[in-house]
Design a protein around this nucleic acid. Structure first.
Lengths: 218, 218
DNA sequence: AAATAATTTTAGATAAAACTAAAAATTTGT
DNA sequence: ACAAATTTTTAGTTTTATCTAAAATTATTT
């Protein structure tokens, strides 16, 4: 597989929402910042290689083989993101571009060992699940912290209220995007939560919990 | 810089022994497993970009800018090798191919942080010095352990006697290629040595020291 | 120093991945 | 349902990095 082929496969995978959905030529072109005619050319090649189903004018979708290939790339991308954040102290939002390059490195052994070095992580710094070596990908959903049951673990991926006072509160309490949060206990009385974040147990109000988004892997 | 250009620059650097020596078209072609005509084409391009000095039929050499570029690549290659060996437990001889891919990743921040993650190593797993960020490369020499002065530190890079008994001895004493050895003390009487290897202090005979090669960085 | 050998370059071609412009097919609006 | 708009494909170029075959230059041998 060439670098370019890999990029197309990944784009088709993402546009197809990970579920072999049919994707349009223009959609791919727009996503990849290229021209539709270039996309048609590449699709033909991928089709000949058995990576996509293709019927002229009707759109493309990944074959089983294509999906497996895409999942390998997603796995590599997300493992490298974990490496960059956990080991090299990159922040949440700096990793994408570099991981985009690293995912193309060809060495199964490298990925196996990287996985081990990172402690077999289940999710990347954005809370998205990492496909297994066999190509199995867990589903994940984004929910308000307030709405998840006690015992749930998830990654903080966004805020509903982005006004300065709320962001200052998060900062003061050392809660940041990318942090893993576990819900320990919910107070019946006022809906406030006891949560664990970065080895620390803290208590937050119902209102805070109603403004933090978590990504949860089932 | 394209991937291919980078590969040529690195080859010219190594064939020129790191010291801008003039290199032949056929030499490059042979080293890179390509044809002389392809080399001529690429040299012209590199020459236009100011990376090499080129006079038809007379050979190529790196310009100062070309040398700096090559040293950046060497730095990246060697840092990745340290990562693969120290962090991912690759062995000495498995790292080259993967590092060859990793060295092309473009991100200065990545290399800075990798360097820090690795504890600012001075040499790679083969004992070769790692160029500084500014492009300064220390010299290194290969010597018999027997011949270096007390206090010297070096990386074990080879054996003079490669018969089974000697290799078994090394194995039994947990001495392997790639290990860093420091000479602590030399016994006047029999020339035997006290050395430190992997946090361990051991005592080896004059004969052993006469059969182990160290790579020493000045 | 001329002939032969080796090296290097040129000229022309090919493959991959992109592009532009025009043609074909599909979708949409009335 | 059919004309207009949109999407997609085709045809023909371009660029990058290769290649082969032939020509030019340099080196070697006698």
């Amino acid at each position: 597989m060439t670098l370019s082929e890999e990029d197309y496969i990944k784009t088709i995978y993402h546009l197809g929402k990970g579920e072999g959905a049919s994707v349009s030529t223009n959609g791919i072109a727009e996503q990849m910042d290229t021209k539709p005619s270039s996309v048609t050319d590449m699709i033909k090649k991928l089709s000949e290689k058995g990576l996509v189903h293709y019927v002229k004018y009707k759109g493309v979708s990944l074959t089983e083989y294509g999906t497996k290939t895409a999942l390998t790339l997603v796995r590599k991308h997300r493992l490298w993101e974990v490496f960059l954040v956990d080991k090299l102290d990159f922040s949440w939002d700096e990793v994408h571009e570099v991981a985009e390059q690293l995912e193309h490195i060809k060495s199964e052994q490298l990925i196996d060992r990287l996985d081990r070095h990172l402690g077999y992580p289940k999710v990347d710094p954005h809370g998205d699940p990492i496909p297994s070596k066999e190509g199995v990908l867990k589903k994940s959903v984004k929910k308000l912290l307030k709405e998840v049951p006690v015992g749930t673990e998830g990654v903080c991926v966004g805020v509903r209220d982005s006004t300065a006072p709320f962001l200052r509160f998060l900062d003061k309490n050392n809660i940041a995007l990318g942090d893993t949060i576990t819900v320990l206990e919910k107070e019946e009385f006022d809906g406030s939560l006891h949560i664990r974040i970065k080895e620390r147990d803290i208590h937050i109000s119902d209102l805070i919990a109603a403004n933090l988004f978590l990504k949860i892997t089932e």
